[in-house]
C-alpha cells in the first residue's frame, strides 16, 4: 500500500502522520505539497492536523480551495481512501466531502488532552482491525472540534450509520461528561456513504507507539495496510 500526506502551509502533524504511516505501520508514504494538482499513484491520502492558513476565515476554509483539493475530490470520487485528522477533518467538512461542520468547542477553550472514543463500526477499511465497542485512548488538540449538523443532516448521518467513533468514558459509555467539546451525539469521527473517506478529531498518529503513551491509534493505519496486503 502507498500513501501521501498532504502538506498545507500551517500543517503541523504532517511529519507525525508520515512517521506513523511509514515508519511504524510500514506503509510506503510520501509528502504531497498543497500546490500540486495531481496525486501520485497512491491508495491513501492523509490530510494532517495543524492550522492550515492560520485557521483564517474558518478552520479548513482556505485549504479547501488549495490546488490539491480538486485532485483529492477526483481521487475520492474514484474510490481512493482519504483520512482527515483534526484540521484534515475540518477541511473535509468545509469541502463538502463529509457532512456537518466543526465549530468552536463549547467551552471556548483549546483542548489538549487524552480522550476515550468508542469504535462504532469495523466493516470499514479504516477500522477492520478493531472490534465494535473497542475503546481507544487518543489525544485531541483542537479549538474547533464541536461537531454540528442541522437536525435533518444529523438524522441522516445516524440513519446511514456514518458515525465511526464517539467520545465515551473508559468503559465505553457515552455520557455528557465524556464529551469534551460539545459535539452532537458525541461524534468524534464520521465516514462518507461510500466508506472511503474518514474524518476524525482525535489524533491516531500521536498514539501509534508506546513511547507516545498509547498505541491505540495504530490500528487505523494497520487496518488500512491490511486491506491492501
Amino acid at each position: 500500500m502507498k500513501a501521501a500526506v498532504v502538506v498545507f502551509p500551517g500543517s503541523n502533524c504532517d511529519r507525525d502522520c508520515y512517521w506513523a504511516s511509514h515508519n511504524i505501520a510500514g506503509i510506503d508514504t510520501v509528502f504531497l505539497w498543497h500546490k500540486e494538482r495531481y496525486i501520485p499513484p497512491v491508495d491513501l491520502v492523509i490530510l494532517p492536523g495543524g492550522f492550515s492558513y492560520g485557521d483564517y476565515l474558518r478552520a479548513g476554509a482556505i485549504a479547501r480551495v488549495s490546488p490539491i483539493m480538486g485532485a483529492i475530490r477526483d481521487f475520492a470520487a474514484s474510490g481512493g481512501l482519504v483520512l482527515g485528522i483534526c484540521n484534515g477533518f475540518q477541511i473535509l467538512t468545509e469541502s463538502g466531502l463529509l457532512p456537518g461542520v466543526l465549530v468552536r468547542n463549547k467551552s471556548l477553550s483549546f483542548l489538549c488532552q487524552y480522550v476515550y472514543i468508542r469504535v462504532e463500526r469495523n466493516d470499514t477499511p479504516f477500522t477492520r482491525g478493531y472490534n465494535v465497542g473497542d475503546v481507544l485512548r487518543l489525544p485531541i488538540a483542537h479549538n474547533e472540534g464541536n461537531f454540528f449538523a442541522p437536525p435533518d443532516m444529523l438524522d441522516e448521518i445516524e440513519r446511514k450509520k456514518l458515525v465511526l467513533f464517539r467520545y465515551c468514558d473508559s468503559n465505553g459509555n457515552i455520557t455528557e461528561e465524556s464529551n469534551p467539546n460539545g459535539s452532537m451525539n458525541s461524534i468524534a469521527g464520521i465516514i462518507n456513504e461510500n466508506g472511503n473517506i474518514l474524518g476524525m478529531m482525535p489524533h491516531p498518529e500521536r498514539a501509534s507507539e508506546l513511547i507516545l503513551g498509547s498505541r491505540d491509534g495504530l490500528g487505523i493505519f494497520e487496518s488500512l495496510k491490511e486491506g491492501y496486503a
Partner: peptide
C-alpha cells in the same frame, strides 16, 4: 462559496 458556511 467561501465567506460563509451555509450549514451554520
Amino acid at each position: 462559496k467561501l465567506l460563509s458556511n451555509p450549514i451554520i
